[in-house]
């Protein structure tokens, strides 16, 4: 019987394709992502029962997290209004990455297999997920920038032709400065593309390496380290979620107009 078995070998860098739907691969990390969506849907249903006057313990915990994320964003944005604008994106990243990193700590969940293939694997150990997250984050930031500066204002941040023309009118020295600024604008395009690479590789590298390390350490010292390593796993999982969210919030603040 190979439906349920314990998996002991090191996870591969690539996710396992559990099955295909119309030629579209469905990986174990994607299935875990769907599982997380299901959990969040249940959570969304429970939010409808939240009360203004008599909050339950669970509600208090959720509100504590909500205020905690807002407080963190306040430190980055400097204003509560901006933090509330940032919250849906950063909060979603924090919740998704946090849950993805921590959900594998549920005993047995990652050991469920189908036809010898692991069904559930932490989404953040898959580069496709971290790349998707980073791409979505940068895309949302670009949209926010267009909304803030206007389309031509946004494009003008990268291609500073107007500054180049003004510099040419004001003499060689100013033209030289304008040319340097033009080059800086061009490098900003590379910088924004690099953000996707940087965010996705940082998260993937940390979580995947952490998982490999956990398996190696637990294999070597199975009776001594599980509690310590699990505790560190929770801590590092949350830290990575905070790092990703904080970086995204910083990029967002750089992209939009300062007065906003």
């Amino acid at each position: 019987m190979d439906f349920i078995q314990l998996k002991r070998e090191l996870p591969g860098v690539s996710p396992e394709i559990v099955f295909n739907i119309f030629g579209f691969p469905v990986s174990n990390t994607f299935l875990m992502g769907l599982f997380i969506i299901g959990l969040l849907l249940l959570f969304a249903l429970s939010v409808r029962k939240f009360s203004v006057k008599k909050p339950s313990g669970f509600q208090t915990f959720i509100e504590f997290l909500y205020e905690g994320i807002l407080g963190l964003l306040d430190q980055i944005s400097g204003s509560r209004k901006m933090s509330e604008k940032l919250l849906p994106l950063i909060g979603s990243l924090f919740v998704y990455i946090g849950l993805s990193n921590l959900i594998e700590l549920i005993p047995g969940l990652s050991n469920i297999t189908l036809n010898g293939k692991q069904i559930f694997r932490s989404p953040t150990t898959d580069f496709n997920t971290t790349f998707g997250l980073a791409f979505a984050t940068v895309a949302i930031i670009q949209m926010a920038s267009i909304q803030s500066w206007g389309f031509f204002g946004h494009v003008g941040k990268y291609l500073q032709f107007r500054r180049l023309i003004e510099g040419a009118k004001n003499g060689f020295a100013d033209f030289f400065m304008a040319f340097i600024e033009f080059l800086i604008g061009m490098t900003d395009i590379i910088s924004d593309v690099a953000k996707i690479i940087s965010l996705s590789f940082r998260l993937f590298g940390n979580i995947y390496a952490g998982q490999v390390m956990a398996i190696i350490m637990l294999g070597a010292l199975a009776y001594l380290l599980p509690a310590v390593w699990s505790s560190l796993g929770i801590f590092f999982g949350l830290v990575q979620a905070i790092v990703f969210g904080s970086l995204a919030a910083t990029y967002f603040m750089i992209a939009v107009k300062p007065e906003e």
């Binding site: 969304a44 909500y66 997920t129």
Partner: peptide, 25 residues
Amino acid sequence: LALANLVNFFIIFYILKRFAFKPIG
């Protein structure tokens, strides 16, 4: 897979924004 995960995140983003962050706020 990257596209599927991208869509996955946008779904999560929508669910949390519409049904969690807004009502909690």
